[in-house]
Amino acid sequence: MVTKTVDSYHFDKLEETIAKLNEEDCTIIAGGTDVMVLHKSRRGVAPKIAGPVVFIDHLSELKQTYLAEGNLHIGACCTYGEMLEHSLIPSVFKKAIREVAAPAIRNRGTIGGNICNASPAGDMLPLLYIFNAKLVLRSFLGDRIVEIHDFIQGPRRIARQQNELLVEVILPDVVDEESTYLVFEKIANRQADAISKVSFAGLLQVKDGKVADARFAFGAVGPTMVRSLEIEKKLLAKGYPLRAEVLEEVVADFSSVINPIDDQRSTAYYRETVALKLLRYFLTSKELS
């Protein structure tokens, strides 16, 4: 029996990598923490990866984190471990990162990988959604910027062209964490090496007793993150603490946009109940300053 080996590329420069992507459809490996699991074979047999592989985790161009014009740029190949150490990464992201898998995975897994894996339970995704993350996709033609909610189309379905590479994540107008109520919650069966049953990110700003900004997104309650700008809009300029009718309306609206399922990790009933409880709690628990 002939064992076919897979071509693999490991270029020194980003441009070479981009050029190769233009020639061939490659499986891109950053940390490999999802790709290796996805293509795992039974014991004793190498992973089955169809087509060539291109490694990108060593490219220094993809590991930069910096502020530019008030926007935070995070290189797609920054690992969780690196982000945890970086002073510019918002602390709510660090809270989320500390709940990702365990240190070994956090030393390999990258933010770009988490986005491109497009899991309904992706740990970074709820926060990226409420921070209105924009993604920089580079090809030989140049850069294209896409909103994260347009990029992620479904479980493991993303709007990346074959010749494109996700190079950077931009968090526009990073909010001041001091004056903003930010929450991230990962609900899982244990405290490490776990996959979310429900995840939640919320952002609330109250000015002069009125809601100035309200955003929230849930993971693992639908095929992709669930965020509704329409529902969020209903909260704007509403008096805070919210009146019961406003709260009930928002929670009811939200219950109609989530669509959780039963699986080996939890039940649809649990996911829906907990998601709505978390939302209700989030919208009522901010202490008035």
């Binding site: 365990a102 244990r190 405290q191 490490a192 090496d193 776990a194 996959i195 080996q264």
Partner: peptide
């Protein structure tokens, strides 16, 4: 630790899904 059988088939095929405690728990 939660293991379930559905129509005679064990549902949890990985340690992550079965959920034994880690040192964090």
């Amino acid at each position: 630790e939660k293991m379930t059988s559905k129509q005679g088939k064990i549902q949890q095929r990985s340690i992550t899904d079965y959920g034994p405690p880690t040192s964090m728990d």
